[in-house]
Simulated scan of single mutants.
Amino acid sequence: MKGKGGNVGSRFPLSFWEVGAASSVVLGFVLCLLGVYQTMPASDYSFLKLPRTLEDLQILSMMWMLFCRDHLETYTIDYTAQVLVWYCVVYISMQTFMIPGTVFMSLLAGALFGVLKGVALVVFTATAGASSCYFLSKLIGRPLVFSLWPDKLSFFQEQVARRRGGLLNYMLFLRLTPTLPNTFINVASPIVDVPYHIFFLATLIGLIPAAYVTVKAGTALGELQSIGDLYDFNSIATLFLIGIISITPTLMSKSKS
Protein backbone atom coordinates (compact mmCIF):
# COMPACT_ATOMS: atom_id res chain seq x y z
CA MET A 1 0.00 0.00 0.00
CA LYS A 2 2.85 2.35 0.79
CA GLY A 3 4.30 1.72 -2.64
CA LYS A 4 1.07 2.66 -4.32
CA GLY A 5 0.61 5.75 -2.22
CA GLY A 6 4.24 6.80 -2.50
CA ASN A 7 3.94 7.95 -6.10
CA VAL A 8 0.96 10.16 -5.36
CA GLY A 9 2.91 13.01 -3.84
CA SER A 10 5.19 13.36 -6.92
CA ARG A 11 2.40 13.99 -9.40
CA PHE A 12 -1.20 15.03 -9.65
CA PRO A 13 -3.17 12.04 -8.32
CA LEU A 14 -5.74 11.91 -11.17
CA SER A 15 -5.28 11.30 -14.87
CA PHE A 16 -6.81 13.50 -17.55
CA TRP A 17 -9.67 11.03 -18.14
CA GLU A 18 -10.37 10.69 -14.42
CA VAL A 19 -10.56 14.47 -14.08
CA GLY A 20 -12.92 14.54 -17.07
CA ALA A 21 -15.18 11.87 -15.57
CA ALA A 22 -15.26 13.59 -12.18
CA SER A 23 -15.97 16.96 -13.82
CA SER A 24 -18.88 15.42 -15.73
CA VAL A 25 -20.39 14.08 -12.51
CA VAL A 26 -19.97 17.45 -10.79
CA LEU A 27 -21.52 19.25 -13.76
CA GLY A 28 -24.46 16.86 -13.71
CA PHE A 29 -25.18 17.57 -10.04
CA VAL A 30 -24.78 21.33 -10.57
CA LEU A 31 -27.27 21.25 -13.44
CA CYS A 32 -29.72 19.27 -11.26
CA LEU A 33 -29.41 21.83 -8.47
CA LEU A 34 -29.91 24.72 -10.90
CA GLY A 35 -32.89 22.96 -12.44
CA VAL A 36 -34.55 22.45 -9.06
CA TYR A 37 -33.77 26.03 -8.03
CA GLN A 38 -35.26 27.44 -11.23
CA THR A 39 -38.46 25.38 -10.91
CA MET A 40 -39.20 26.52 -7.35
CA PRO A 41 -41.98 29.16 -7.13
CA ALA A 42 -40.43 32.62 -7.50
CA SER A 43 -42.23 34.05 -4.49
CA ASP A 44 -41.48 31.14 -2.19
CA TYR A 45 -38.00 29.70 -2.64
CA SER A 46 -35.99 32.72 -1.52
CA PHE A 47 -35.78 31.42 2.04
CA LEU A 48 -34.85 27.86 0.94
CA LYS A 49 -31.08 28.25 1.12
CA LEU A 50 -28.60 25.65 2.31
CA PRO A 51 -28.22 25.99 6.11
CA ARG A 52 -24.61 26.17 7.31
CA THR A 53 -25.08 26.85 11.02
CA LEU A 54 -27.63 25.99 13.66
CA GLU A 55 -28.74 29.62 13.66
CA ASP A 56 -29.36 29.50 9.89
CA LEU A 57 -31.39 26.35 10.36
CA GLN A 58 -33.46 27.86 13.18
CA ILE A 59 -34.20 30.94 11.05
CA LEU A 60 -35.11 28.74 8.09
CA SER A 61 -37.39 26.57 10.22
CA MET A 62 -39.09 29.63 11.76
CA MET A 63 -39.70 31.14 8.32
CA TRP A 64 -41.07 27.82 7.14
CA MET A 65 -43.45 27.59 10.10
CA LEU A 66 -44.69 31.15 9.50
CA PHE A 67 -45.09 30.40 5.83
CA CYS A 68 -46.98 27.17 6.52
CA ARG A 69 -49.30 28.92 8.95
CA ASP A 70 -50.58 31.18 6.17
CA HIS A 71 -50.18 29.01 3.07
CA LEU A 72 -50.01 25.38 4.26
CA GLU A 73 -52.87 23.96 2.23
CA THR A 74 -51.98 25.72 -1.01
CA TYR A 75 -48.25 25.05 -0.69
CA THR A 76 -48.76 21.37 0.16
CA ILE A 77 -50.95 20.86 -2.89
CA ASP A 78 -48.83 22.88 -5.33
CA TYR A 79 -45.20 22.76 -4.22
CA THR A 80 -44.51 19.79 -1.93
CA ALA A 81 -42.94 17.81 -4.77
CA GLN A 82 -40.52 20.64 -5.53
CA VAL A 83 -39.44 20.87 -1.89
CA LEU A 84 -38.88 17.12 -1.69
CA VAL A 85 -36.87 17.10 -4.93
CA TRP A 86 -34.85 20.11 -3.73
CA TYR A 87 -34.10 18.38 -0.44
CA CYS A 88 -33.10 15.08 -2.08
CA VAL A 89 -30.85 16.67 -4.68
CA VAL A 90 -29.07 18.87 -2.12
CA TYR A 91 -28.59 16.07 0.43
CA ILE A 92 -27.36 13.54 -2.18
CA SER A 93 -24.99 16.15 -3.64
CA MET A 94 -23.52 16.90 -0.21
CA GLN A 95 -23.02 13.19 0.50
CA THR A 96 -21.51 12.50 -2.92
CA PHE A 97 -18.91 15.26 -2.71
CA MET A 98 -18.24 15.01 1.05
CA ILE A 99 -19.60 18.51 1.76
CA PRO A 100 -20.04 19.11 5.52
CA GLY A 101 -23.50 20.00 6.79
CA THR A 102 -25.69 16.92 6.30
CA VAL A 103 -26.48 16.98 10.03
CA PHE A 104 -28.26 20.30 9.44
CA MET A 105 -30.19 18.77 6.57
CA SER A 106 -31.28 15.94 8.87
CA LEU A 107 -32.44 18.47 11.44
CA LEU A 108 -34.33 20.27 8.70
CA ALA A 109 -36.11 17.05 7.73
CA GLY A 110 -37.43 16.74 11.28
CA ALA A 111 -38.53 20.37 11.37
CA LEU A 112 -40.33 20.19 8.02
CA PHE A 113 -41.71 16.67 7.79
CA GLY A 114 -41.88 15.23 11.31
CA VAL A 115 -40.19 12.15 12.74
CA LEU A 116 -41.55 9.29 10.61
CA LYS A 117 -41.37 10.98 7.20
CA GLY A 118 -38.18 12.77 8.18
CA VAL A 119 -36.36 9.57 9.13
CA ALA A 120 -37.51 7.86 5.93
CA LEU A 121 -36.34 10.84 3.87
CA VAL A 122 -32.96 11.10 5.61
CA VAL A 123 -32.24 7.37 5.37
CA PHE A 124 -33.21 7.34 1.69
CA THR A 125 -31.13 10.38 0.73
CA ALA A 126 -28.17 9.40 2.93
CA THR A 127 -28.09 5.91 1.41
CA ALA A 128 -28.43 7.28 -2.12
CA GLY A 129 -25.69 9.86 -1.50
CA ALA A 130 -23.38 7.29 0.11
CA SER A 131 -23.94 4.97 -2.86
CA SER A 132 -23.17 7.77 -5.29
CA CYS A 133 -19.97 8.54 -3.36
CA TYR A 134 -19.09 4.81 -3.38
CA PHE A 135 -19.29 4.56 -7.16
CA LEU A 136 -17.55 7.89 -7.73
CA SER A 137 -14.71 6.75 -5.48
CA LYS A 138 -14.57 3.44 -7.33
CA LEU A 139 -14.05 5.45 -10.51
CA ILE A 140 -11.50 8.03 -9.37
CA GLY A 141 -11.01 7.74 -5.61
CA ARG A 142 -8.06 5.39 -5.17
CA PRO A 143 -5.19 7.92 -5.50
CA LEU A 144 -7.06 10.50 -3.44
CA VAL A 145 -7.75 8.07 -0.58
CA PHE A 146 -4.14 6.89 -0.57
CA SER A 147 -2.91 10.47 -0.34
CA LEU A 148 -5.47 11.80 2.18
CA TRP A 149 -5.98 8.90 4.63
CA PRO A 150 -3.11 6.39 4.28
CA ASP A 151 -3.17 5.27 7.94
CA LYS A 152 -6.96 4.94 8.18
CA LEU A 153 -7.02 3.12 4.85
CA SER A 154 -4.41 0.59 6.06
CA PHE A 155 -6.44 -0.04 9.22
CA PHE A 156 -9.72 -0.35 7.32
CA GLN A 157 -8.25 -2.69 4.71
CA GLU A 158 -6.78 -4.94 7.39
CA GLN A 159 -10.07 -5.11 9.31
CA VAL A 160 -12.10 -5.86 6.17
CA ALA A 161 -9.68 -8.63 5.16
CA ARG A 162 -9.91 -10.20 8.63
CA ARG A 163 -13.71 -10.08 8.78
CA ARG A 164 -14.74 -11.32 5.34
CA GLY A 165 -16.96 -13.98 6.90
CA GLY A 166 -18.96 -11.45 8.90
CA LEU A 167 -18.44 -8.33 6.85
CA LEU A 168 -22.05 -7.16 7.03
CA ASN A 169 -21.96 -7.17 10.83
CA TYR A 170 -18.66 -5.29 10.83
CA MET A 171 -19.96 -2.66 8.40
CA LEU A 172 -23.09 -2.29 10.52
CA PHE A 173 -20.87 -1.76 13.56
CA LEU A 174 -18.98 1.00 11.74
CA ARG A 175 -22.20 2.72 10.66
CA LEU A 176 -23.71 2.56 14.13
CA THR A 177 -20.65 3.80 16.02
CA PRO A 178 -18.22 6.69 15.41
CA THR A 179 -15.26 4.29 15.03
CA LEU A 180 -14.58 5.61 11.52
CA PRO A 181 -16.19 8.70 9.93
CA ASN A 182 -19.06 7.93 7.57
CA THR A 183 -17.44 10.05 4.88
CA PHE A 184 -14.29 7.93 5.00
CA ILE A 185 -16.34 4.71 4.90
CA ASN A 186 -18.17 5.93 1.78
CA VAL A 187 -14.96 6.76 -0.05
CA ALA A 188 -12.75 3.90 1.15
CA SER A 189 -15.17 0.96 0.89
CA PRO A 190 -14.74 0.36 -2.85
CA ILE A 191 -10.97 0.76 -2.49
CA VAL A 192 -10.74 -2.07 0.08
CA ASP A 193 -13.16 -4.27 -1.91
CA VAL A 194 -16.27 -4.05 0.25
CA PRO A 195 -19.01 -5.46 -2.05
CA TYR A 196 -21.70 -2.94 -2.88
CA HIS A 197 -24.58 -5.10 -1.60
CA ILE A 198 -22.85 -5.28 1.82
CA PHE A 199 -22.15 -1.54 1.73
CA PHE A 200 -25.76 -0.77 0.76
CA LEU A 201 -27.40 -2.95 3.43
CA ALA A 202 -25.08 -1.74 6.19
CA THR A 203 -25.72 1.88 5.19
CA LEU A 204 -29.49 1.51 4.86
CA ILE A 205 -29.90 -0.25 8.22
CA GLY A 206 -27.03 1.29 10.14
CA LEU A 207 -28.02 4.92 9.57
CA ILE A 208 -31.53 4.53 10.99
CA PRO A 209 -30.70 5.02 14.72
CA ALA A 210 -28.57 8.15 14.19
CA ALA A 211 -31.12 9.51 11.70
CA TYR A 212 -33.88 9.03 14.25
CA VAL A 213 -31.91 10.88 16.96
CA THR A 214 -31.15 13.83 14.66
CA VAL A 215 -34.56 14.07 13.00
CA LYS A 216 -36.33 13.87 16.35
CA ALA A 217 -34.14 16.72 17.58
CA GLY A 218 -35.19 18.67 14.49
CA THR A 219 -38.81 18.58 15.59
CA ALA A 220 -37.78 20.70 18.60
CA LEU A 221 -35.30 22.84 16.69
CA GLY A 222 -35.93 26.00 18.66
CA GLU A 223 -34.78 24.34 21.89
CA LEU A 224 -31.32 23.35 20.58
CA GLN A 225 -28.46 25.52 21.80
CA SER A 226 -25.65 23.70 19.95
CA ILE A 227 -24.94 20.63 17.86
CA GLY A 228 -23.62 18.96 21.03
CA ASP A 229 -27.19 18.86 22.33
CA LEU A 230 -28.06 16.33 19.60
CA TYR A 231 -25.96 13.54 21.03
CA ASP A 232 -26.08 13.33 24.79
CA PHE A 233 -24.48 10.51 26.76
CA ASN A 234 -27.57 8.30 26.55
CA SER A 235 -27.82 8.65 22.76
CA ILE A 236 -24.14 7.85 22.19
CA ALA A 237 -24.23 4.94 24.66
CA THR A 238 -27.29 3.53 22.89
CA LEU A 239 -25.62 3.74 19.48
CA PHE A 240 -22.50 1.99 20.83
CA LEU A 241 -24.64 -0.73 22.42
CA ILE A 242 -26.46 -1.36 19.13
CA GLY A 243 -23.11 -1.44 17.34
CA ILE A 244 -21.65 -3.96 19.78
CA ILE A 245 -24.73 -6.19 19.40
CA SER A 246 -24.35 -6.06 15.62
CA ILE A 247 -20.76 -7.32 15.73
CA THR A 248 -21.25 -9.93 18.49
CA PRO A 249 -22.11 -12.81 16.07
CA THR A 250 -18.83 -12.25 14.24
CA LEU A 251 -16.82 -12.24 17.48
CA MET A 252 -18.55 -15.42 18.68
CA SER A 253 -17.87 -17.26 15.43
CA LYS A 254 -14.19 -16.26 15.62
CA SER A 255 -13.89 -17.52 19.19
CA LYS A 256 -15.45 -20.89 18.22
CA SER A 257 -13.02 -21.28 15.34
Rank of each mutant, 00 (worst) to 15 (best):
D229N: 12
F135R: 11
Y231S: 01
S154W: 08
F29V: 10
P209H: 05
N182W: 14
L241W: 04
V85C: 09
F146Q: 15
L139N: 01
V8Q: 12
F155H: 10
D56C: 05
T102Q: 05
A22M: 12
E158F: 13
I92G: 07
L204D: 00
V103I: 15
L116D: 11
Y45D: 08
W64K: 00
T96P: 12
W149M: 15
V30K: 03
I191L: 08
I77Q: 11
F173I: 07
F184C: 01
E73M: 02
G218L: 11
G9V: 09
F12T: 09
P178R: 00
A120I: 13
L207V: 13
V145M: 12
G165L: 01
G9E: 10
L107A: 03
V83R: 02
V119H: 03
I59E: 14
F233S: 09
S23Q: 07
S246H: 04
K152Y: 12
P190Y: 12
V213Y: 09
D78R: 10
W17N: 08
A111Q: 02
L174A: 04
C88Q: 01
S23R: 03
V89P: 01
A42I: 12
V192T: 04
K2R: 06
G28F: 09
D151Y: 15
S46P: 03
S246P: 03
P41T: 14
L139H: 05
G222P: 01
L176D: 03
L116A: 13
W64E: 02
L108G: 07
V192D: 05
L241F: 15
R163F: 14
L176Y: 00
L136V: 09
L180C: 07
L172T: 11
A210K: 06
T125M: 04
I244Y: 06
G35T: 14
L108A: 12
A220W: 03
G243A: 05
L168I: 11
V89F: 02
F233R: 08
S257C: 03
F113R: 02
L27E: 02
T127F: 14
S253H: 04
I191P: 08
F124M: 10
Y196N: 04
T96G: 10
L66D: 13
